[in-house]
Amino acid sequence: MVELVSGPKEGAGLDAGAERIDRVGVVGCGTMGAGIVELCARAGRDVRVAVSSADSHVRGAARIRASLDRGVAKGRITEADRAAALDRISFTTDLGELADRQLVIESVREDEQAKAEVFATLDKVLVSKDAIIATNTSSLSVARLARATRRPGKVIGIHFFNPVPVLPLVELVGSVLTEPGTRTRAADFVAGVLGKTVISAPDRAGFLVNALLFPYLLSAVRMVDSGLATPEVVDQGMELGCAHPMGPLRLADLIGLDTTVSIAQAMYEETKETLYAPPPLLLRMVECGLLGKKSGRGFYTYA
């Protein structure tokens, strides 16, 4: 059952004795990770970002600054807000430096083994027994990731949407192992502190939103693959005929075609439903490095 979780006031749902979440860790600073870092820092939290290398630090910090600069240019935040947010962010290449965090959100590539390795390490280094380990996965089983730890009751899915600072929805995904108190604290933080609308989604491949979205995206790819229409015509039809703000192929380019394949494959492997199977055209494009907007070329070409 899908449940809409209203936004409580900060601390309203905390269990007796549970710490308020002031110190947040984020593992990974790609597009999604950088957005999560920015969101938490703007909400007044101390954020430590664990990245894999000095180059990842440079690229991640640039993403965060560029997003904050856009916020200033559009009047969403002030220069003082930007400076304060940046002051709350620190970087490390050592997961051990997340030991004092009360909430750590993993946002590495959509690969179950890579995520499980991060979870196993976090389980060893986190000091607080109440610390929550969350994943931003958009398709993988939260329960399987939780089993990589000795604290599966403290593991939960917190699935943000891109762009994180702008889109208002977050899927909260508890597994059969997640403790009720973990759900409550996570919902309180995401809704009460970060100001997002939270829905409780099932721990199944694709959760709720992607389980609905991806058959639509893949159907659009199949239409192009079969020669029935060009990407431009498909997108124009959905934008002008159905009032979608972005057509399915532009959206796939924005998500990343490699990410689209990973999510589709995870859903297909769990359900064996053909509507989730990645079309051959999509697989070939990813093999050739045509990953969408982030690579400069996908169904469209980008400057």
Rank of each mutant, 00 (worst) to 15 (best):
residue 72 V to Y: 10
residue 91 F to L: 08
residue 135 T to I: 06
residue 299 F to N: 06
residue 22 D to T: 15
residue 143 A to H: 10
residue 49 V to E: 08
residue 231 P to Q: 05
residue 86 L to W: 03
residue 206 G to Q: 08
residue 66 A to T: 14
residue 130 D to P: 06
residue 110 E to T: 11
residue 172 L to F: 10
residue 56 S to I: 04
residue 115 K to T: 07
residue 160 F to K: 10
residue 175 S to K: 08
residue 161 F to G: 07
residue 287 E to P: 05
residue 228 L to P: 00
residue 150 R to W: 00
residue 34 A to Y: 03
residue 99 A to G: 01
residue 201 A to N: 02
residue 146 A to M: 04
residue 160 F to L: 10
residue 103 L to N: 05
residue 202 P to D: 04
residue 150 R to Q: 15
residue 299 F to V: 03
residue 34 A to Q: 02
residue 153 G to K: 01
residue 286 V to F: 04
residue 48 R to F: 03
residue 280 P to C: 09
residue 159 H to G: 09
residue 45 R to S: 12
residue 185 R to G: 03
residue 203 D to H: 11
residue 108 V to P: 13
residue 192 G to L: 09
residue 184 T to N: 11
residue 170 V to G: 12
residue 50 A to G: 06
residue 39 L to Y: 00
residue 300 Y to P: 05
residue 221 V to Q: 05
residue 52 S to A: 14
residue 87 D to L: 06
residue 181 G to F: 01
residue 91 F to G: 10
residue 167 L to S: 00
residue 28 G to C: 13
residue 28 G to R: 10
residue 292 G to M: 14
residue 194 L to N: 01
residue 129 K to C: 00
residue 20 R to N: 03
residue 96 G to C: 09
residue 142 V to C: 09
residue 143 A to D: 15
residue 156 I to N: 04
residue 222 R to D: 13
